Simulated scan of single mutants.
Amino acid sequence: MANGTNSSQTAAPGSADRLYKIIESTPVGICITDKGGIFEYVNPTYCRLYGYSESELVGNHFTMVVPEGNRDYLSQLHDDFMQQTVELRGEWAVQRRDGSIMNILADASYILDVDNEPKKVTFVMDITRRKQMEVELERTVSQLNQEIEERKQLERTKDEVEKMMRHDLRNPLNAILIATQLLMSHDLDEQQRGLVNMIQDSGQKLNYMISSSIDFIRMEEGTYHLKPRRLRVTDLVRTVMQETLPAREASEVTVSLLLDGAPMPGDAGCALEGERIHLENLFSNLLRNAIEASPQGSEVVWETLDRGDSLEFRIHNEGVIPLEIRSEFFKRFSTSGKRNGTGLGTHIAKLITSAHGGTIRFETGLEQGTTLFVELPVQQPLDESSEDFFYRSAGQTG
């Protein structure tokens, strides 16, 4: 495999083997091509997605997995990318070994190997099912277009859900790229080994979000059925802190974790019922927004308060919410002064909070900064018609 370390450097004992095993087992397809577009490495997931063996791919040009009509175009994009004149990312149609077409979400990183030769590392995810769902949704909306007004809401929300999904795909995908770039350019130490774990975690999160994007439509309509499991708050906090690590490092912002006014111990026993992936999404959005709104080098405080039947989460930063968006802070597309901001993060947070039977609000001012308050019930009501009823009534956790 190519890497970005200097030839005079040596990785920590055993670290290269551990990195190799992680990349080999990650659910994200990974390939490395040289300047001429020749495959130098493919991981097992990449081979499985395309239906080829490693020996059939390595040594051949990457356009063997591209439909014939697009080969010249993608070859030119590859050449431009290797000259670092264009960023190669987006959704593409590719061709499997059996001739079938697969839709992928791809993102590429430019690296230099030990011989200072340029390489392209590409991360690939199969989004064929999602594209099929989009086609089916469009067909359904078209059929219902002349029916009652409530049915028309499906068409109006389709594009909004797509933007919500892309908003939340960007964060874990960036984590994959940042972690990999660091690993390609440095010796592996304890922190970097932790970053490697993001590859698998973020890949799994992307897969889940692509397959479950319809959740946001149902939350918007109030028809979403929660599938709760008992979750330890410390596990939730640990995942959110890992996902926001790049944002914290970029802004040199520290995050203090408190439980009932004291530093949160790693083995704190407080827990609540909810859907892990959506609650991680909720607090990742809020904490990342707090970090990005904070002055360089300042502190964000994330406190959990045990209210008995509920848990209250407070996220405080020294920034101030602009006056012009305060009244619409939790509405779609509410944003101000944030580069590349979609204005969907707080709206998604409100949807998830409401789906869990909770409340969300904020207080902001020049002297006190901004605090987000999220209160969630410790226990969700049992739905006897749900497939989760028997699991939860038996006391099982997820």
Rank of each mutant, 00 (worst) to 15 (best):
E68S: 13
I352Y: 10
P295W: 05
V255E: 00
A271L: 02
S25V: 06
T353P: 03
E275H: 05
N197M: 11
T304E: 12
M1G: 12
I178N: 12
E243Q: 14
F390A: 15
R193G: 10
M219Y: 01
L226H: 01
A349N: 02
G59F: 11
Y52N: 06
R89L: 09
I30C: 11
I277W: 12
G358M: 06
N70F: 15
T63Y: 02
G90E: 02
Q192P: 00
R97K: 13
E318A: 15
R130P: 00
L282E: 05
V141F: 04
P377R: 06
Y224E: 07
D215A: 03
S284K: 06
S336M: 07
T33R: 15
D260S: 04
S55T: 12
R361G: 13
G29K: 08
E243G: 01
V161D: 08
G37A: 12
G297D: 01
T10M: 11
I277S: 15
G357M: 04
G308T: 03
S213M: 11
R314H: 04
G99F: 07
G341K: 08
R238V: 03
G269Y: 07
L173V: 11
G90R: 04
L351T: 01
C31N: 13
Q95C: 09
A12C: 07
K131C: 07
P172F: 02
L245N: 13
T359C: 10
Y224S: 00
K158L: 12
E220N: 14
I348G: 00
E149K: 04
E249D: 09
H78V: 06
N317Y: 14
R392V: 00
M64Y: 01
L366F: 11
L257F: 02
F330R: 03
G269D: 15
T5N: 08
L351P: 00
A93I: 14
N317C: 10
E68C: 06
S75F: 03
A16H: 02
E155W: 07
P172Q: 05
S142C: 12
L272Y: 05
T370Y: 10
Q83F: 11
H61K: 11
D187S: 14
L366C: 04
